[in-house]
Amino acid sequence: MIYPIVAFGDPILRKPTRFIEKDEMDLKKLSDDMFETMHGASGVGLAAPQIGLNIRIFVVDATPFSRKDDEDDDEPDLSLADFRKTFINPEILEEVGEEWAFEEGCLSIPGIRGDVYRPETVRIRYRDIEWNEHEEEYSGMAARIIQHEYDHLLGKLFVDYLPTLKKQFIKKKLSDISKGNVDADYRMRFSSRK
C-alpha cells in the first residue's frame, strides 16, 4: 500500500515519536508499505511521521547511490549497493568524525534542497522486523541517510540545520508547501486541507 507523504506544516512532523512494543503491529507489512511508498516517491529514506504515524521506525534504500547516473559526474558508491534496511526503535549511540556537507532534500519538503553538515560516522542500536537487536556503525552517505531519517523521529527536519539567510530565502516556499501549493510527482497529505 502506498501512503500519501505528509507535507511540511503538519504537526506530526514536529512531534517526537514513541517506541514500538513487540507484537504491537505487523512490522513486516508496515515495512513493505513504507518501502513501496518511498520507492513510489523516488526517495532513499522514509520515516513513520512522513506517513502520519507517530512511531519509531524508518526505512532506507541507498541503492540509487550505487548506480552511475549519466547526468552526474560523481562516481557511484558501491558500498551502498545492498544498503536497504528497516530500523525499528533506533537509538543513535554516537556520532563522530569530521562534519561534512551534502545537499539534502526531503519527500515532505519537495523542491527545496540545502547543504547540511553532519558527522561522518554514526553508531546505532535498533531492531529489525524479526525483532532482533543490532548495534552497527555506518560512515559516509549511509550515516547521513540514517541521521536524516532519525531526525524525523525526533521531530527535526533538514531545514532546521540551514543558515538563517537560507531559511529566510525559503520561508515563502515552505509556507506554500504547507498550504498545498506545490508540485510533487507523488501523492501528498496537507494538514491545511483536512
Results as ranks from 00 to 15, higher is better:
Asp69Ile: 08
Pro163Leu: 07
Glu104Phe: 01
Leu107Ser: 00
Glu103Met: 11
Glu98Thr: 13
Leu154Glu: 15
Ser108His: 06
Asp185Thr: 12
Tyr186Ile: 00
Tyr126Met: 00
Glu137Ala: 06
Cys106Asp: 11
Phe169Trp: 15
Arg118Leu: 02
Asp115Gly: 04
Ser191Trp: 14
Tyr161Arg: 10
Leu78Arg: 12
Phe65Arg: 02
Gly114Glu: 08
Asp160Thr: 05
Trp131Pro: 10
Leu107Tyr: 00
Ile146Arg: 09
Arg123Trp: 03
Phe102Ser: 11
Gly97Pro: 08
Gly155Ile: 07
Phe169Val: 09
Val182His: 06
Ile88Pro: 10
Gly114Pro: 06
Phe169Ile: 11
Leu80Pro: 09
Val116Trp: 04
Met188Asn: 01
Glu91Pro: 04
Phe158Asn: 08
Ile124Pro: 05
Met188His: 05
Ile112His: 01
Glu130His: 14
Gln147Ala: 03
Glu135Ala: 02
Val60Phe: 02
Thr86Gln: 10
Lys172Tyr: 04
Glu99Cys: 10
Phe158Arg: 03
Lys173Trp: 05
Cys106Phe: 05
Leu107Thr: 01
Phe190Trp: 01
Asn132Thr: 09
Lys156Leu: 09
Arg144Leu: 08
Phe83Arg: 07
Asn132Lys: 15
Glu149Phe: 11
Ala62Ser: 10
Cys106His: 08
Pro163Asn: 10
Asp183Asn: 15
Asp160Ala: 03
Glu98Tyr: 10
Tyr186Gly: 00
Asp74Gly: 06
Asp151Arg: 03
Val122Trp: 07
Asp72Ser: 13
Leu162Asp: 08
Leu78Trp: 11
Asn89Arg: 14
Lys68Tyr: 03
Ile88Asp: 11
Gly140Asp: 05
Ala62Glu: 02
Glu98Gln: 12
Thr63Leu: 00
Ile88Lys: 12
Glu103Ala: 14
Met141Ala: 12
Asp115Tyr: 10
Cys106Val: 00
Val59Pro: 09
Arg56Tyr: 04
Asp70His: 12
Met188Lys: 05
Asp160Lys: 03
Phe58Thr: 10
Glu99Val: 13
Thr164Lys: 15
Pro90Lys: 02
Arg125Pro: 12
Lys179Pro: 09
Asp176Ala: 12
Ile146Ser: 07
Tyr117Trp: 06
Ile112Leu: 09
Glu103His: 10
Phe158Cys: 04
Val60Pro: 03
Asp128Ile: 12
Glu149Lys: 06
His134Gly: 02
Gly97Asp: 07
Ser108Trp: 07
Asp82Ser: 12
Ile170Glu: 10
Ala143Ser: 15
Glu130Pro: 08
Cys106Ala: 04
Lys68Leu: 12
Ala142Phe: 05
Arg125Met: 05
Tyr126His: 01
Asp72Phe: 07
Val159Lys: 08
Ile170Val: 15
Leu162Ala: 07
